[in-house]
């Protein structure tokens, strides 16, 4: 991709009709599957030690969207989770807080209550999943009402799911227009667009979905809901990082990336950070542009952090479960 002066009009042309959009998305270069997997595996072998590891662990903690998306979620659990997001390691005031908590829309008030109780200085964002998460199988007006509800409750980040059925049957414009509609509904909040890459079948589809979501105005592109296996994988995230890099080259706009689901260990998280740095570039090594959707990952990061500070291996007994 190269920067052209007529970029804006070229992107506008691409979304002018279903046929034009299909022509554009199918005109994107195909992903070399073996190459992408090998590159991701290769980047995963980098050795990150001592001060670089300390930096990576603290950065990863700052990038966590601490998530609870269970049918069994209670206000109490969300309050506990929000407290943990502000002070992941209560024994250590130097431990940074996480980027956000991620909950269902009806749980947003409880998260807000806890997070703003700290005088609104915690800096922890509230992300809510909306648009009939996780399946996305509802009428558009219901999805928009869901978004509205979350925004009014105080969510400043909305995680929407795309209509995979429409996407897979090639109705790209429908998906595009839905994202645009949600983008309008979120107002000042940030919009993260979830692809559910485990259902998209091919890397080519992931690349197409990435471009589609970025052209529609998503602030973040996110791999998965965490409800479908496989969730986030290194090669899928690699394809998405390439897409945001190329999109910035073409349009000058930066879009964030959020892998979610299945990232459980500090080692995994560091592999992702290495990939962000090598593929998208150091500009993305920031909680504003890269996030981890995770719940158990945080405890492992905290255990590694404690290990680096005390010189002894820590155990799960010393950290809260949720």
């Amino acid at each position: 991709m190269t920067v052209t002066s007529s970029t804006a009009s070229f992107l506008a042309d691409a979304t002018s009709s279903d046929a034009a959009l299909r022509r554009f998305l199918h005109g994107l270069p195909g992903v070399d599957q073996v190459g992408a997997e090998q590159r991701a595996a290769g980047l995963g072998t980098r050795s990150i030690k001592t001060s670089a590891k300390e930096f990576a662990i603290d950065l990863a903690i700052r990038m966590v969207d601490l998530t609870t998306l269970e049918g069994a979620d209670t206000p109490g659990k969300v309050r506990a989770l929000s407290t943990k997001a502000m002070h992941p390691d209560p024994a250590d005031p130097t431990c940074p807080s996480t980027a956000a908590v991620c909950v269902y829309p009806d749980m947003v008030p409880f998260a807000k209550e806890t997070l703003s109780h700290a005088g609104g200085t915690s800096g922890v964002h509230i992300a809510a999943v909306a648009t009939a998460f996780p399946s996305g199988r509802a009428a558009l007006d219901i999805k928009l009402a869901d978004v509205q509800d979350a925004v009014e409750a105080g969510a400043d980040e909305i995680d929407m799911v795309i209509d995979r059925g429409a996407f897979l049957s090639g109705r790209y414009l429908e998906v595009y227009e839905e994202i645009v509609a949600v983008r309008e509904a979120v107002g000042d909040a940030h919009l993260k667009v979830i692809f559910e890459t485990g259902e998209l079948q091919t890397y080519d589809n992931v690349r197409r979905a990435s471009w589609l979501a970025m052209m529609a105005g998503g602030h973040f592109i996110k791999t998965s809901t965490g409800k479908i296996q496989p969730a986030a994988t290194l090669p899928v995230t690699l394809v998405m990082l390439e897409a945001v890099r190329d999109f910035r080259e073409v349009t000058g706009q930066m879009v964030g990336v959020k892998p979610a689901g299945g990232i459980r260990s500090s080692k995994d998280a560091i592999k992702y950070l290495v990939m962000v740095n090598e593929v998208a570039g150091p500009d993305w090594l920031d909680p504003d542009w890269f996030r981890f959707g995770a719940s158990t990952l945080l405890n492992d990061l905290l255990m590694q952090r404690t290990k680096m500070q005390t010189g002894r291996y820590s155990g799960p007994d010393y950290f809260t479960l949720d």
């Binding site: 010189g311 002894r312 291996y313 820590s314 155990g315 799960p316 007994d317 010393y318």
Partner: peptide, 9 residues
Amino acid sequence: PWLASHMDV
């Protein structure tokens, strides 16, 4: 020593 100092042992 790593086992003696391990907090989960």
